[in-house]
Amino acid sequence: MTEMDEARDALDRQQTVEITTTGRRSGRPSRIETWRYRAAGRYWLTGSPGARDWYANLVANQAFTIHLKDRDLLVHGRLVTDPTERATILGEIVPGLDWAGSLESWLEGSPLVEIEF
């Protein structure tokens, strides 16, 4: 098994993760806990509708770190703004979240970032 396969396996086992982004104004590391999602065979970061500092940081600098129990992964975030792609991915994620509210609200106001290795 390659190192990348091991990293993917580790990410599969852990939905709650911590990420460290680079502050868009301060340039300092900013670490938070969040959830990762899996849809269309890939990994994503998103959240309920609203502004997120982690997302604003990724808009400025897409490189970030995912901290798992047994390793840190240096990754890249691909910001997803295309309405069709957002509808496809969020349409797979949101219905499985009993607390999420409407898909339409997520499409209008939630960040969506693909985690790229």
Rank of each mutant, 00 (worst) to 15 (best):
S48L: 14
E6V: 14
L68D: 01
T88W: 02
V75F: 04
T21E: 01
V75K: 07
F117H: 11
D82N: 09
A60V: 10
L97T: 05
R24Y: 07
L112P: 00
N57L: 02
L58A: 06
T84I: 13
E33R: 15
T22Q: 13
E33T: 09
L74G: 14
L90Y: 06
L90F: 07
S48H: 13
W44L: 08
T46C: 04
L74I: 13
E33S: 14
R13H: 08
M1Q: 10
L73Q: 06
R52G: 02
T65C: 06
R36S: 15
S26E: 00
Y43C: 09
P95E: 08
P95V: 07
T65N: 03
L74K: 12
M4S: 14
E116H: 11
T20Y: 07
E18G: 10
P83V: 04
G96K: 15
V94R: 10
A10G: 00
R38H: 15
G27Q: 02
D5E: 15
A63G: 12
V75N: 02
G50K: 04
H76F: 14
A39T: 08
G50D: 00
E85F: 02
S110T: 04
A87T: 10
W35P: 09
Y43G: 07
F117L: 12
L11Y: 00
Y43W: 08
S105D: 14
M1S: 11
T2G: 12
W44A: 12
A39V: 03
L90T: 01
M1D: 13
R86A: 01
